[in-house]
Design a protein around this nucleic acid. Structure first.
Lengths: 232, 232
DNA sequence: ACGCTTAGGTCAATGCGTTGACATAAGGAG
DNA sequence: CTCCTTATGTCAACGCATTGACCTAAGCGT
């Protein structure tokens, strides 16, 4: 048999002190295992080292820093989100479905949400998502520049709001905020805040996520701007 | 003379090793000085200790953690943003102005942006902003529950997008992303990504901020939903 | 078979936020 | 004036991400 170097790009792997031979995929797997561990957010570089049976710093031979590792994980998740997404004939419905899919996927891994909203993974899965979305807007009758611009607006709003929702899921800090908010609303003075006082009965609903409302607003604005079949 | 304890809630302040007597306001001032320092992002608890002439851990006698300190700073900034904001008769224009004001203010202090988007400061300035915004939607003819819901959607979308824009301002990581994006767009295959290929000429514009576009979409969706003067 | 180069594992150290134990002076009570 | 309580400053330590120096064996050319 030939040496095992055939397909792999990396060679010269040396076994760690505990005998394991590292590979990028193996690191991503271990990291995902820690991220999804019971306590949640159990991923640290040091623990990853233990999980892999290697010195923590060995990870930096494969990923520039923790961000790069998280991005690699994120691209996997995008592909999972995309799998099974089949846009129908109604571009508005398809866009809505896409938005919800992204939102759900990001809530499933809050630790990665912030990164996914901000950074470009440059992976094929992200391009695939962009291609589908822009295709939808083109099918709605938008010109090429308008489709690009509007899709960018849409997807960035969806991503950033999803990241916001994900952040509120995180530790226990948010609970304290909710209490502070309830207290503030209970004691607000009608002289200082006449409008808040006027709608006081409806303020508690603020604990719900703004995501669905914003999603509908975006789609309705796009429908309004679209040169649809009924337009001149 | 009487002792100095008169107005202040805190008593028993002991001078630090270097003779300074700490106060919460003083800590906020020092922190803002570091945040706005040349290099940017120069704020660390340890440096704050040096700046104040105290042990870093002394700060934790005044703020539960760094987050709490940042929130205290954020409430100051909200008040600055609000100062000089005078809503005119046109609710759409006023909302637009408010959105831009928030966006600008958050870009001015990227370090605080993420926190301002997610956390509730419970300060009077935040309530003031909410009061004004909801007042605008009430004046547009929305019912109380609709005004609350729509304002929540609006302000959260503005906050989260502003945080996203602010994050892209941060270190040098983003530049690498832009390059990766440009490369990806230059080499994309028309077979795999037909729609992206079709709009290829317009993709470079993606580097612009999506904020203005989203702001207009939100306002136009609200205008559509509003039971305005011309509605039944 | 032998030596060279070097990828990649390991170690030690940096600065970070945060915390618990400890020390001490401020200020009230008598 | 003296004593006691306790707010608040200080110190040492934790685990964190990251990095530079090192060391060693994998796999090449000969």
């Amino acid at each position: 048999m030939a040496t095992t170097r055939a397909s792999s790009g990396r060679v010269r792997r040396r076994p760690t002190r505990s005998g394991v031979v590292l590979e990028p995929e193996m690191i991503i797997d271990a990291a995902l295992r820690l991220i999804e561990a019971p306590g949640g957010n159990a991923l640290t570089v040091r623990r990853l080292g233990v999980e892999l049976g290697a010195d923590p710093s060995a990870i930096y031979r494969y990923f520039r820093d923790l961000d790069a590792l998280l991005i690699a994980i994120a691209d996997r998740l995008i592909s999972e989100t995309l799998a099974g997404f089949e846009p129908g004939p109604d571009w508005k419905a398809a866009l809505r479905e896409m938005g919800r899919g992204v939102h759900d996927s990001m809530l499933r891994h809050p630790r990665l949400a912030q990164l996914r909203a901000i950074r470009f993974t440059a992976g094929p899965n992200e391009l695939r998502a962009d291609d589908i979305g822009i295709g939808l807007l083109l099918s709605a009758g938008f010109s090429a520049p308008d489709a690009v611009r509007h899709f960018r607006d849409f997807i960035d709003a969806v991503l950033s709001l999803a990241a916001m929702d994900a952040a509120e899921l995180a530790p226990g800090q948010e609970e304290a905020d909710k209490e502070a908010l309830a207290r503030a609303y209970a004691t607000l003075s009608p002289e200082d805040y006449p409008n808040l006082a006027a709608v006081r009965d409806h303020l508690p609903q603020i604990t719900a996520s703004p995501f669905p409302g914003v999603l509908e607003k975006l789609i309705s604005a796009l429908a309004l701007a679209a040169p649809g079949p009924s337009a001149p």
